[in-house]
Amino acid sequence: MHELKDLYQEVIVDHNRSPRNFGKLAGANRVLEGYNPLCGDRLTLYLNVKDNKIENITFDGSGCAISVASASLMTETIKGKSTGEAEGIFHSFHDMVTTDSGEPDFDKMGKLVAIAGVRDYPTRVKCATLCWHTLHSIIQGERASVSTE
């Protein structure tokens, strides 16, 4: 039996109520909207990327607590990281929320483990991954534009 409080941890309730890095980013050079047509969640990511480094990132939009908290935690985690590192975290995050084996690895995932509870709620996994897929698209898009230069 999965406890509800494993999903709606204090961290999630808190990040939902007061999301970090929330709002538009002046001087952003990468902007992309992520949309989940199934539930209508809409999040826009604003990034400032320089020399493959994510110097700053913010988001706005609206969605359920899981999607807002996930985006909030994501921005905190990847700010200052290289795009390659961010991609690595994206894949680890994806694994964490889609496999149900073992305890989430706090040493590796840090505060993102707060989201791990969604793996027991298959209908909610997309809420948690919306922001990450959007980030992934931005980074992929950047690579694509680099490769065509």
Binding site: C39, C64, Y121
Partner: peptide, 14 residues
């Protein structure tokens, strides 16, 4: 107010 319908749905399902 303050609670997204999807969160309501999950909690109610519980």
């Amino acid at each position: 107010e303050g609670i997204h319908p999807h969160d309501i749905g999950t909690i109610l399902d519980h």
